[in-house]
């Protein structure tokens, strides 16, 4: 098994060991979304208008919850030092970590999304648009989020700082994603929005692993 695959396997196993912690972002996600109909009233048309925004805001916030865990254990127990002294390039290791985060913290949210579409009375066209934006956009959350997590891993107080660093950066994604779903609601094409998200994703995919690697090196100083 190649070192990167071995790392992926180990991290997924570890995540599976800590199922309770793994479920937290999902439950948070579900809770936030349940709050909205209670707050603004169960009127289907209102929910349909705010639905895409609510789902995306909740997805961003709950992805932050899972992010904090990304490098924490490996940093604290010193596994990170040994990974950095292995023969695998650090950006590849970073990419493996990002993949783990996406698979363990985000895919469950996507799996849950049909339920939310029913909760918030999204039409079928809107749901497909939502799914497309989630599939294209959420890896971006993991990639860019990992930069900030790598920067703050030594600080032991990620939480609010992480949100402060990341939420402004995620605004374009939020705008394009919700507008794609809005367009779908009005039966307009939304390929432009998807293309923007895809472009941002590719851009982040090219640069973020190196930024994460550099940030991890800084964390060791």
């Amino acid at each position: 098994m190649t070192p990167v695959m071995a790392l992926l396997k180990r991290d997924l196993t570890l995540a599976f060991h800590q199922r309770a912690e793994l479920l937290q972002p999902v439950i948070f996600f579900l809770l936030v979304i349940t709050l909205f109909p209670l707050a603004v009233g169960p009127n289907a048309s209102t929910l349909q208008i705010i639905g895409p925004g609510v789902i995306w805001v909740a997805a961003i916030l709950s992805s932050l919850l899972g992010l904090e865990r990304l490098f924490r254990d490996d940093y604290q127990d010193g596994s990170l030092e040994h990974l950095m002294l292995s023969t695998t390039p650090l950006p590849l290791i970073a990419l493996a970590k990002v993949t783990t985060h996406w698979l363990t913290s985000i895919v469950p949210l996507i799996v849950l999304s049909p339920l939310l579409a029913i909760f918030l009375h999204l039409s079928e066209a809107m749901y497909w648009a939502l799914l497309a934006t989630l599939l294209l956009g959420t890896p971006l959350l993991s990639l860019v989020g990992a930069i900030a997590v790598a920067l703050t891993v030594g600080l032991n107080r990620g939480g609010v700082l992480l949100a402060l660093l990341l939420v402004p950066i995620f605004i374009p994604l939020l705008i394009f994603a919700t507008s794609a779903v809005d367009s779908a609601a009005m039966e307009l094409p939304y390929t432009a929005q998807l293309a923007f998200i895809a472009a941002m994703l590719l851009f982040a995919l090219a640069l973020a692993p190196f930024a994460i690697a550099y940030a991890l090196k800084v964390s060791q100083n």
Binding site: A6, L7, R10, L14, G78, S79, E81, L83, L85
Partner: peptide, 28 residues
């Protein structure tokens, strides 16, 4: 190089065997 530092680089949830197998995989 073999480095032995203050932090042991062992994941506390994995067994000794799993930790060492993983380390060997990382070190080829």
């Amino acid at each position: 190089l073999v480095y032995f530092g203050h932090k042991l680089g062992l994941n506390l949830r994995l067994s000794a065997l799993e930790n060492l197998v993983f380390w060997c995989e990382q070190q080829n």
